[in-house]
């Protein structure tokens, strides 16, 4: 029982991080039909911005702020301007391939310019354990989970309650009609990219203290975010949250109870099953299909 609670809590913490990344992923898809194959590398990169700032003797809070700012600039605005904008009208596939190349670019660029080794990353949430029902629960896990959920609900509130948020939703649902209604569609799409950049930066700051900052750490995270987004539902934020949490828990239980060789296969089977039997995702709306 104690073991189960530990697994569940660790799973929820990982899952909350997956959810952050998956939400950004679905937002980009909704507003600009961008399948970002570099999303995992987007999570890897901000940690290195912070490490670079720390190396210049910046205090942690300042380094985190710099990391966030640099992410918004590079992964948000620059990514949209330089990569997405020129390619958008040519369809989904060339853009997807371009993000694949971007992921190689970021990964190899960090490896060459910073380090090929895993670097320790300071945690800004408290460590230690608390006892609960006879289980030793890591405070770090709990605080990651809580922090991520707060971010998600704040984002949800922003999208639902504020005028800008509603304009963003309108843009995602139907850009032409949104434009007719006087919504600055271009700016709304830019906001989406900035939100994605903010989400991956936060995910990066939360996950790097646990798994260390390494140039290749985006590979597994990116894949997990894809799976979470699809399992939960590609077109709903609550789907990405549920998908992320579910995947985190399934992942952790599979690691404990399925053979170590095939633990990686469990999320994939989940993915295939969901796509084949409920393509809109567990919590998504059914999308109109062209065929």
């Amino acid at each position: 029982m104690a073991n189960m609670i530990n697994l569940l809590m660790a799973g929820l913490a990982t899952g909350a991080i997956y959810a952050l990344v998956a939400i950004g992923f679905t937002l980009l898809w909704q507003t600009s039909q961008t399948i970002n194959f570099a999303q995992g590398e987007f999570v890897m990169l901000p940690a290195f911005f912070v490490l670079a700032a720390l190396n210049l003797k910046a205090p942690l809070w300042l380094a985190l702020l710099i990391g966030l700012g640099a992410s918004l600039l590079v992964l948000g605005a620059l990514f949209k301007r330089a990569v997405v904008d020129p390619m958008l009208r040519h369809g989904v596939l060339p853009l997807a391939i371009c993000t694949m190349a971007l992921s190689i670019f970021l990964k190899e660029g960090v490896k060459e310019s910073y380090s090929a080794e895993a670097s320790p990353f300071p945690s800004f949430v408290p460590g230690g354990n608390v006892s609960l029902l006879g289980a030793q629960i890591s405070i770090q896990s709990v605080s990651i989970f809580v922090f991520a959920l707060v971010v998600v609900f704040a984002l949800q509130a922003f999208l639902m309650r504020t005028s800008t948020g509603r304009q963003m939703q309108a843009t995602a649902q139907n850009p032409s009609v949104a434009r007719l209604l006087g919504i600055p569609v271009e700016r709304m799409i830019l906001y989406t990219f900035l939100i994605n950049a903010g989400l991956v930066a936060l995910a990066s700051f939360l996950v790097s203290p646990v798994y260390l900052a390494k140039f290749s750490s985006g590979e597994t995270l990116g894949l997990a975010a894809f799976i979470a987004a699809i399992v939960g539902g590609f077109n709903q934020i609550r789907g990405a949250i549920a998908g992320g949490l579910l995947l985190g828990v399934v992942d952790n239980f599979a690691a404990a109870y399925v053979s170590t060789q095939y633990r990686g296969a469990v999320p994939l089977f989940l993915l295939i099953a969901v796509i084949l039997f409920r393509p809109q995702g567990l919590f998504g709306r059914a999308e109109e299909r062209t065929v």
Binding site: A96, I227, Q261, L268, I272, I275, L276, P279
Partner: peptide, 28 residues
């Protein structure tokens, strides 16, 4: 067969999952 049911990015992800599963079989 999945391509008969789903298209585009969904199909891409089914084949992506298949590809990773095949790798696991080779390794294990």
């Amino acid at each position: 067969y999945p391509a008969l049911r789903v298209q585009h990015h969904y199909l891409a992800f089914v084949t992506l999952a298949f590809s990773t599963l095949v790798y696991l079989v080779f390794r294990n």
